[in-house]
Design a protein around this nucleic acid. Structure first.
Lengths: 233, 233
DNA sequence: TGTATACTTCATGTATACAAAATGGGTAGT
DNA sequence: ACTACCCATTTTGTATACATGAAGTATACA
């Protein structure tokens, strides 16, 4: 029942991709990774195939595996698609939720809070990921789940950037997200589908705002601009 | 540039699954399939992994690959999810469509019509599948595409049953579907998103009706019931 | 100097041999 | 007759050797 070396390899690679430790577009050498994880190339290639199947990697014939790209084009689609799928999944999850899943959700939330307390931003992003993955599992919809999983991959990779809360304002946003998680758990537990959808969209709006804040930050104060102005060059 | 043995194997297995030649739940022996396709087990296993990644198979560790199941539970989800995804994809496809894709769509439709003329029901189902897959590609949304692909797998597997048009009524339905395809092509070509969505939902309604007709057929005439009535047993 | 081409090198793809796990059948015990 | 357990057989999993194909480098030629 202990997880095999192959499973460990799979999970580690997945986490490293989610944490941007393996950057989008990075190409993965079979030989070096196989020696690193103590596997031969055959099972390692199978791990790559599985990761590719879930959208973490893409494999080009005769050219090996590369971490799934995150270009501007993809991000446009992300913002367009995420709220639709998140809302649809939330509705189903609220309708379907069983006690064991609510418990799993609470556990994930506990870990999320611990990571927040410890300012462990990598764990924070990963437990947030897990939290939303469980919601996907609650929906028990084999057609929507692969879409949700792909959205979560990119969502986590983006959020990883701003979960390194630096300012007090960032820290408040994370707290707000945590509160929303608790409210969502309650909505799922009481099978309140309408509320679950509403909270999910609120949660999305917060996260989207964080990302936008990162991409289009407030302009720097005038004084900071001084060194770059002038007529050098 | 010629397709490799591995590609041929992949495509053949995919088609066989879509045509129910490989039944849902059937388990696939690695050795026999590898000899059948003239591959060794290593590349065959990679084909299996890829098929599993796209939802055609599921692989259980130490227990091999089985064709994706189609139970009642899954079908319920299918009817629940298909119209949402189909509509969303149709909208995006209409917005995004480029001439080359419209041409690909017309080609698929030509093949569809040929299959209809030849009463080649296997080809009919497969070209219908391809037609809708192209629409998915037109949407160029990497998040929705995996959901759409999974829906199409099961949709094609179901439709395969009733594309063996027996009655004149069946034949008229197929003709109607073909007409809808033409109307949809026009809507995509003119970037008419609203119309594309409307036509897509009509198309879905027709298909859904066909499936329901198959699952809940008209009751047999009274006279047919006679042999089964009575007090035997 | 620029370009084309052959060669070297390295990474990916495939086959095969071996290891480990699961299945099925038979036997012993209750 | 039923159940539990062990062994034989089959099937899946892993390692390694070899084949194939891509990328980069050096050399010859224009």
């Amino acid at each position: 029942m202990a997880p095999s070396k192959k499973d460990l390899c799979f999970r580690d690679l997945r986490n490293r991709i989610l944490q941007l430790d393996l950057a989008p577009g990075a190409d993965l050498d079979e030989t070096s990774f196989s020696t690193h994880y103590g596997l031969s190339r055959t099972p390692l290639r199978e791990v790559f195939q599985k990761l590719a199947g879930e959208g973490y990697l893409s494999i080009e014939p005769n050219r090996g595996a590369v971490v799934a790209a995150m270009d501007l084009y993809t991000m446009r689609r992300f913002f367009q698609t995420a709220p639709i799928i998140y809302a649809a999944v939330a509705r189903l999850a609220a309708e379907q939720a069983i006690p064991a899943q609510i418990k799993a959700l609470k556990d994930a939330q506990t870990h999320f809070m611990s990571a927040r307390a410890a300012s462990d931003n990598a764990a924070l992003a990963l437990w947030n990921h897990r939290f939303h993955e469980i919601i996907g599992e609650m929906a028990t919809n084999p057609y929507l789940l692969p879409s949700l999983r792909r959205l979560l991959i990119d969502h986590t990779r983006m959020s990883h950037i701003f979960y390194r809360a630096k300012t007090a304002e960032d820290s408040i946003r994370v707290l707000r997200a945590a509160q929303q998680h608790d409210e969502m758990i309650e909505a799922f537990a009481t099978h309140n589908a309408e509320l679950a959808v509403e909270l999910t969209l609120d949660h999305w709006a917060l996260s989207r705002g964080e990302i936008e804040k990162y991409v289009w930050p407030d302009p720097l104060p005038e004084t900071y601009m001084q060194p770059f102005s002038g007529d050098s060059q």
